[in-house]
Simulated assay, not measured.
Amino acid sequence: MRLYEAFSDVDLLELFKHGDQKAYEEIYRRYWSLLYISACKILKDEDEAKDVVQEVFISFLDKGARLQISVSLSVYLYSSIRYKVLDKIKHKKVSENYLLSLYNYSEAGESVADEKLIEKELIFQMERAILLLPEKMRIVFELSRNQQLSHKEIAKMLDISDKTVKKQINNALKILKIKLSDAIMLFL
């Protein structure tokens, strides 16, 4: 009898991809509680956390030999948990509360990902989202945020009303919030 608990994740993954059910069981045993704790911290609901972990392992089992993993098994599984949590959050339409939970979770130092890489990627996603704003809105937003000009200064510079400046900035923030919420969820 093989001692599966002594195998590395890489070895277990290879055995699993070749149909070894015991390797799957060891992966499940090794990661279930860790993934459950991670999901529970974010969702704040034990039953939902159990459901998410089960869905991840069912999907993992279904993929079997077709499974293509370019990162470590732990990173793959934690990422899968994050994607499933994102699905739960989208369906509940309370993403703002969960974004805060994810932010706090990440700030507590319990995130698996490297913070500097995440920060760079989020900055890239934000800059990209700003570039996709309608031109006039983007100009007003950049003058406000990058140049730190007041609404009055922007209005004078662009020969528009203070009210228009305020509305453009508010609209830009709404658009960016929607576009960036998925990126934030994926990286935290």
Rank of each mutant, 00 (worst) to 15 (best):
R2I: 07
R2Y: 05
R2K: 10
L3E: 14
A6G: 01
V10K: 11
F16W: 02
Q21K: 04
Y24W: 05
Y24A: 13
E26I: 03
Y31I: 02
W32F: 09
W32I: 05
W32Y: 09
L34E: 04
L34S: 14
L35F: 00
L35C: 03
S38Y: 15
I42H: 07
I42K: 14
L43Q: 14
K44N: 12
K44D: 15
K44I: 12
D45E: 11
A49L: 11
A49Y: 13
Q54N: 04
E55M: 07
L61M: 06
L61R: 00
D62P: 10
G64C: 01
I69E: 05
I69L: 10
S72C: 00
S72R: 03
L73A: 04
S74A: 14
V75N: 15
S79Q: 06
R82G: 00
Y83K: 10
Y83Q: 10
K84G: 03
V85I: 15
V85K: 00
L86D: 07
D87K: 06
D87G: 01
D87C: 08
I89C: 00
S95Y: 15
Y98T: 02
L99M: 05
S101Q: 04
S101G: 06
Y103V: 00
S106K: 10
E107G: 04
E107P: 02
S111P: 02
E115C: 11
L117K: 14
K120W: 07
E121V: 03
Q125R: 12
R128G: 03
I130K: 04
E135D: 13
E135R: 15
F141W: 14
Q148S: 11
L149K: 13
H151L: 14
K152G: 06
I154G: 04
K156Q: 14
M157R: 15
L158S: 05
V165A: 03
V165K: 02
I169H: 06
I169Q: 06
N171P: 02
A172W: 07
K174S: 08
L176F: 07
K177S: 09
K179G: 04
L180A: 08
A183L: 01
A183M: 05
A183F: 02
I184W: 03
L188F: 15
